[in-house]
Amino acid sequence: MSNQTRIETRNLNLRFGSAVVLKNLNMSIKSNFVTAIMGPSGCGKSTLIRTFNRLNDLIPECHIEGEVILNGMNIFDKKVDVVELRKRVGMVFQKPNPFPKSIYDNVAYGPKMHGMAHGKKLDTIVEKSLKDAALWAEVKDRLRDSALSLSGGQQQRLCIARTLSVQPEVILLDEPCSALDPAATAKIESLMVQLKKNYTVIVVTHNMQQAARVSDYTAFLYLGELMEYGEAEQVFKNPSNKLTEDFITGRFG
């Protein structure tokens, strides 16, 4: 699987009404690596990953040109079933957003919706997802408790488990640690590194250190344009762009 392109954007342009958010983006994202997209607030990084699962469709004034190729298929193609696409491209949000249901039901929600499993088999999926999200040990005795009773960090790992439960190919994480304390952040970060064994992980962050810690490939987005993209080491040690250097050395952002 290594070194295989999972997602590729071709001349991707996106605007909300008349406001241009993404400008002519070309990048290819590799399977089984963590790719971090960093940049200052408002640079379009969240919008970018929300195009990968077409969540921007929910915004009526959003216009998209160009292509996003997932496994060789343009996701904007008319034939594409957006519901199926979102099953394959999972997403974890900035603020933990568990459903007001039990811990178990949160994780079981996706498989149930897709008719993937029930009974014992569903239990297995829930357990495996929670284990993969490093949450099983903490919640295994209270699966029927409300998800809202968990701490912020636990809630976010629950959301990751919920995403894993439908066995996506790609996991998008939209600033997953911005609402969490440092200890919870460290747990999520190590989780991201583990997840790349089985998934393609794309994380958006405005935190440059986080990008440096977790990513194999790093992109720097500035005002909707891709300024820098390459192997993390390359980007952090030897950026080719002056703006990237300024961002990395903390001169803005």
């Binding site: 929910l58 519901v83 949000f93 459903f99 996706g110 995403t163």
Partner: peptide, 12 residues
């Protein structure tokens, strides 16, 4: 956010 989370899981 509830709606987003559900749609992102591929629920219709």
């Amino acid at each position: 956010s509830y709606r987003e989370a559900s749609l992102a899981l591929g629920a219709s």
